[in-house]
Write a protein that binds this DNA or RNA. Structure first.
Length: 926
RNA sequence: GCGAGGGUAGUCAAGCCAGGUCAAAGGCGCUGGAUUUAGGGUCCAGUCUCGCAGGAGUUCAAGGGUUCGAAUCCCUUCCCUCGCACCA
């Protein structure tokens, strides 16, 4: 007997697996699975571990089902994050250094090289491969690539040529969050503050002020007729600037912003805010109005000047009222222009007074503004003298009219502030030109995706609605970038293809990755890929032989059967890839299915590298062993559920494997003669095989493990309990050992590989045949007998506990034949309400009277309580209970340590005998 | 705020779609017992409340409804997770 030593099993297996999982086209049926490849900017933690281990279990399962399985892996290195990381390391940023040196344990000399972003991803890609291998992932590593390989770039260019020709790539203008210090657009990741802020399109209403304009930003241009004044902040210094050749008076901040939004701006002079107060401005649509002072005007909001509509804007109303209470500007009256149900003549006044608000700093002001805004937008109508149109129509028309006739321009601004970049600078809105988009908004394209989605298998099924929603919701996607690593954008080579957009059909690339390397990238024209993937012939193709081999690989493997990824990728990658597939590939090469994963927790908290709340996969493997990690990650939750890594639970998983190992080692040599109970065990085993196989076909790793691990373990316990004294099992156990080891092999391949050899097999268990249930070995009669016995034992135990006497003997009283008949009649009946009446029509039953009615009632209750797998066979034919208990008499006497008598109710004379029912004998303890 | 998915005993979790097999599987934890020099391991039993005969009562976020019958179906409220984009 060899000792349980996971470390040693791992070494043994790695040696034997070295090239074992390299997979080539064959005459077997193929099974191709892919996982979203990692962006290797740091070390792998146990959360990553599950993402790759679950597919590996599935791969191993189908491999044993004798499919030709392909499970490849590559590394996604395109994008900007590592560029930022390398910069931070170059300037010795303490947080970054701490993360990489102390948490990810990068050696000092390697860390020094990290000033080059490519070094980072290369280092961690190698690291990933090493750790993945140590976990026993059965990956075909010949197909590994990274997304900056020149060959891969050629593939991306080919892909984009098709997208472009299909009209899905368009050029546009786009407002983005922008940091002027970094000179770069700012993503959510790069924000210190303000990630909720949205870019809003304002219309600037241009008021004439002498020879200059005062532009005020508004979301409600339709209220221009109600303007009574402007607001300027007397404490702010404004500037007069030439904007596109016209003089504007705006805040300093606004001048800086406008530069980023396609305007030439030349600041001429400064004007203190107080100098503007009480001056008059005019607009063709509202006439001449004064500028009033207001401290609430924020120079950093749009132009720093605001138009005031006190009748419809609570802020304006209350600010004006405050001034008037000081006796100033009393001649100004709010000018209403919108009628809205539920409010009086002057809605803003109405709302403020109803809410009992007394000053502008009241915290409810924002909500109130929102309330009026929504009410007027959804139900409001302009007065007839202003056109009488609904607000939602008038707003758009008025904005357009102002832009056309009244010098208005558009300005973009955030709806809330502050918005701060990670560098500490304020983020502004910049209009990007030469920005390219993938036109995901195209209804025809969406339709193609929706149509295909219907044919795809989605696991778990609940995610389907989310996919449908995402397809409907997707807008155009900005697909070019100016920084980071990546493939040059073919129609504008200063730009790069955005990293999510270069990774949508790479699953096809895996099929040829190991062969295309042999060809000089310069020769890889789009025609070459058209031939490999689409079968399009063209003259002068290079290396025709190699191309044919690749075409053969592609045709064999593609489409992929399942793609695995975490659920946070539904709204981008997982949906994008369908868009790209439907454009490029023919119908029979479109993806077949997806499995969406839940998230990982560590001791109940979300795993996060930046917060340091991670447990590195490598540490987990060395501490607990690869099989333990695998079994825990696949067994503690189904793949789509969130899982929680807790060391104490992992430890108990390890014990479980040890127990399994010890059991097999102990049982494999059993030589006893098979007994009835062996037939029971083998019968049960067939059912475990069926259930476990079904579970794995449905990706239910947890369910499968429960079936194969605890299910079989529990059976064995009963089996051993039932064995006659001095017998340690029969040679049938050899079958069980072989089956059990194979069932667990996908989960704990290292231990299984070792045991498989111990069981006398020369070949790898990784390729051994998956157990198939033999219907003929299923013996429901024996199972029923054992169930009766087990239930009776349970009953005896619970009675024993209740009465608390030392029993001297045990009598099992069997129900009479007529009760069996009643039981059967009820079990067979479809209408359980009338069946009792039917029974009582029978003469012999009538004679028994109340005894029979009671028995019928009790049987009905019992039948409700018993599981169907018990009731069904009993409905067909009665079980010979006497035989069951006589066979088990020795067992029962041994269990309870007292003599056991088995008697029939009618001859026993025991009062208790009357309660005996089929499948529930009466028990008398004396 | 909008969209999607959830809330089950100490805890993790099955059951829910196809209502009665549900006081509700299984794991972990805890308690007691057996084995053991001890610990560990293993085995047995218990783990909502009451009960000295296998039973009864009250439970499945909260409240209401449908039904002979609801953890399961419908409605409302509260709470949690994920996504909301130019980012992997």
């Amino acid at each position: 007997m060899s000792e349980f030593d996971l470390g040693r099993f791992e070494e043994e297996a790695h040696e034997r697996w070295l090239h074992a999982f390299e997979s080539n086209p064959s005459n077997r049926e193929k099974y191709y699975i892919t996982v979203a490849f990692p962006y290797p900017s740091g070390a792998m933690h146990v959360g990553h571990g599950r993402t790759y281990i679950v597919p590996d279990v599935i791969a191993r399962f189908w491999r044993m089902r004798q499919k030709q399985v392909l499970f490849p892996m590559a590394f996604h290195v395109t994008g900007a994050p590592v560029v930022g990381i390398s910069k931070r390391i170059a300037r010795n940023d303490p947080k970054t250094i701490h993360l990489y040196r102390d948490l990810y344990k990068v050696p000092q000399n390697v860390l020094e090289e990290f000033t080059n972003p490519l070094t980072i991803v290369r280092h961690f890609a190698a690291e990933y491969q090493r750790v993945m291998t140590s976990c026993g992932l059965s990956i075909d590593w010949r197909r590994r690539f990274i997304t900056v390989d020149p060959t891969y770039s050629k593939f991306v260019e080919w892909q984009w040529k098709h997208l472009y020709e299909a009209g899905h790539v368009i050029k546009g203008v786009h407002p983005v969050r922008y940091c002027t210090v970094d000179d770069n657009p700012v993503g959510d990741h790069d924000l210190l503050e303000g990630d909720k802020a949205e870019v809003i399109k304002f219309t600037l209403v241009m008021f004439r002020f002498g020879d200059a304009f005062i532009p005020t930003a508004t979301l409600r241009p339709e209220t221009i007729h109600g303007v009574t004044n402007l607001w300027a902040n007397p404490n702010v210094t404004y500037v007069k600037a030439l904007v596109d050749g016209n003089a504007w008076i705006i805040s300093k901040e606004a001048a800086e912003k406008l530069v980023l939004q396609d305007h030439t701006v030349e600041v001429k002079e400064e004007i203190p805010g107080k100098d503007l107060v009480d001056k008059n401005v005019s607009h063709p649509l509202c006439g001449t109005v004064p500028i009033l002072p207001a401290d609430f005007v924020d120079p950093d909001m749009a132009t720093g000047m605001v138009m005031s509509v006190p009748a419809h804007a609570p802020f304006d109303y209350i600010a004006l009222r405050d001034l008037q209470q000081q006796g100033k500007y009393t001649q100004i009256k709010p000018v209403p222009l919108i009628k809205v149900d539920g409010y009086g003549e002057v809605p803003a006044q109405d709302a403020v007074e109803r809410a009992g608000i007394h000053h502008q700093m009241d915290s409810r002001m924002d909500a109130l503004t929102q309330e009026i805004y929504s009410a007027e937008f959804s139900k409001g109508k302009l007065f007839v003298k202003f056109g009488g149109k609904p607000v939602r129509v008038a707003r758009e028309e008025m904005a357009q009219e102002m832009l056309n006739k009244y010098d208005s321009v558009v300005m973009y601004e955030f709806d809330s502030r502050p918005v701060i970049c990670r560098c500490g600078n304020k983020v502004k809105v910049k209009i990007l030109h030469d920005q390219w988009f993938l036109k995901y908004s195209d209804p025809a394209w969406k339709q193609q995706v929706s149509d295909h989605l219907k044919d795809m298998a989605l696991v778990p099924p609940e995610v389907r609605t989310e996919f449908d929603r995402t397809v409907g919701w997707l807008k155009d996607w900005a697909c070019t970038r100016r920084v980071g690593l990546g493939t040059k954008f073919p129609w504008d080579p200063v730009q790069l293809i955005e990293p999510l957009s270069d990774s949508t059909v790479y699953m096809a690339y895996y099929t040829i990755a190991h062969k295309i390397r042999e060809i000089d990238p310069k020769l890889l024209t789009p025609e070459v890929f058209d031939y490999i993937f689409l079968g399009k012939k063209s003259p002068d193709l290079p290396e025709k032989r190699k191309l044919d081999a690749m075409r053969e690989e592609f045709l064999y493997w593609y489409p992929y059967d399942f793609r695995f990824s975490a659920k946070d990728l539904i709204s981008n990658h997982l949906t994008f890839q369908i868009f790209h597939h439907v454009t490029i590939f023919p119908k029979d090469k479109l993806p077949k299915g997806m499995v969406v994963f839940g998230m990982g927790l560590l001791n109940g908290a979300k795993m996060s590298s930046s917060k340091g709340n991670v447990f590195l996969l490598e540490d987990a493997v060395s501490e607990f062993g690869a099989d333990t990690v695998r079994m825990f990650l696949t067994g503690s939750a189904e793949p789509w559920q969130d899982f929680d890594w807790r060391n104490e639970l992992v430890l108990s998983t390890k014990k479980q494997i040890e127990r399994f190992y010890a059991t097999i080692t102990e049982l494999k040599g059993a030589q006893g003669e098979p007994q009835d109970i062996d037939r029971w065990l083998i019968s049960r085993l067939q059912e475990h095989i069926v259930k476990m196989t079904a579970a794995l076909e449905n990706f239910q790793t947890r369910q499968a493990l429960q079936e194969a691990s605890f299910g079989i373990e529990t059976d064995l316990k009963w089996y051993r309990r039932r064995l006659p004294e001095g017998c340690d099992g029969s040679r049938e156990l050899a079958t069980l050992c072989s089956v059990w080891t194979r069932l667990l092999a996908p989960f704990i391949p290292f231990t299984a590989e070792h045991l498989w050899r111990e069981l006398g097999n020369k070949d790898l268990i990784s390729f051994a045949e998956w157990p198939v249930a033999d219907e003929k070995l299923i013996n429901s009669k024996i199972e029923l007998s054992e169930e009766l016995l087990a239930r009776t034992v349970e009953d005896i135990e619970s009675i024993k506990k209740l009465i608390q006497i030392t029993p001297k003997s045990l009598t099992i009283v069997l129900a009479p034949a007529w009760k069996h008949e009643v039981f059967r009649t009820i079990a067979q009946s479809t209408d359980r309400n009338t069946v009792i009446k039917e029974i009582m029509k029978n003469d012999t039953m009538k004679k028994r009277g109340k005894e029979a009615t009671d028995a019928a009632k009790q049987c009905t209750t019992l039948i409700h309580r018993l599981p169907p797998h018990v009731v069904e066979p009993l409905a067909k034919e009665p079980l010979n209970e006497r035989a069951v208990f006589e066979e088990a008499q020795a067992f029962l006497e041994h269990e309870f340590g007292v003599p056991v008598h088995i008697v029939d109710a009618e001859s026993s004379g025991h009062a208790k005998g009357a309660t005996a029912l089929p499948f529930k004998p009466a028990i008398v303890i004396e």
